[in-house]
Amino acid sequence: MSDPATLEHVAAELSALRDLFQRRLLDDKAKARLYEELYSQVELARHGLARSQLRPLFGELLLLTDRLHEVVGNPEVESVVEELEEVLRRRDVRRVPPIDVFDPRYHEAVRMETTTDSVKGQILAVLRDGYLIGDEVLRPALVVVASGMNAVEAPNGLPLEEPDRIGSSGMQPE
Rank of each mutant, 00 (worst) to 15 (best):
V71T: 12
F58D: 01
D66S: 00
E60K: 15
R67D: 04
G59I: 00
P97Y: 01
L64G: 08
S79N: 15
V42L: 10
L57S: 04
L44R: 13
G73C: 00
R46Y: 12
R46I: 11
S79F: 08
E78W: 00
D66V: 00
D100C: 07
P56S: 01
P56L: 01
V96C: 03
R90F: 03
E78F: 05
L84V: 05
D92A: 09
N74V: 14
P98C: 05
V81C: 06
T65L: 01
V96S: 00
E83F: 09
P75K: 09
A45K: 08
L57N: 00
S79C: 15
I99A: 12
S79P: 07
P97R: 06
L61A: 04
Q53A: 15
L63G: 11
L88Y: 02
R89L: 03
L68R: 05
E70A: 13
R46M: 14
L62Q: 02
P98W: 07
R91H: 15
P97M: 04
P98R: 12
E86I: 01
L54Q: 03
R95A: 15
V80P: 10
E85V: 08
L44A: 15
F58L: 09
E83A: 14
V80Q: 09
R90I: 02
V77M: 00
R67F: 03
G59L: 10
G48L: 13
G73V: 01
H69V: 11
N74A: 14
E43V: 09
R89D: 11
T65Y: 04
N74K: 01
L54E: 02
L49P: 07
P75S: 06
L61I: 09
E78Y: 04
E83D: 14
L49V: 15
D100R: 13
Q53F: 14
D66Q: 02
S79Q: 15
I99P: 06
V87P: 08
